[in-house]
């Protein structure tokens, strides 16, 4: 899945889990922490994105990226290389 598509899934998931951000203009440089996500929110967001991508990888493999852009890039690469695509 292309990075741009993954980024949109990430934004959709953040808006679902953090409903107060409905009108936020998301940037690739936004971080989940700055957006107010706690550890449970983060896990919910990532799982929601992984389901949207049909990508079954351990949550621990999503811990490296520092912002939403890097997260989208990382998951995009995982979907074509590392991750098992269901």
């Amino acid at each position: 899945m292309r990075k741009e598509e993954v980024f949109q899934l990430v934004v959709d998931a953040v808006r679902e889990v953090l409903p107060e951000l409905q009108d936020h203009a998301f940037e690739e440089s936004d971080t989940l922490a700055d957006l107010g996500a706690n550890s449970m929110d983060r896990a919910e967001i990532i799982t929601t994105v992984l389901e949207g991508m049909d990508l079954d990888i351990p949550l621990v493999e999503t811990f490296g990226p520092r912002d939403l852009g890097e997260l989208a890039q990382h998951l995009s690469e995982a979907s074509t290389t590392g991750g098992r695509v269901a």
């Binding site: 919910e44 929601t48 992984l50 079954d56």
Partner: peptide
């Protein structure tokens, strides 16, 4: 059919 994507909140 998709247990891998069970939401983490279930654990609480």
């Amino acid at each position: 059919d998709r247990p891998a994507f069970l939401r983490p909140g279930y654990g609480l």
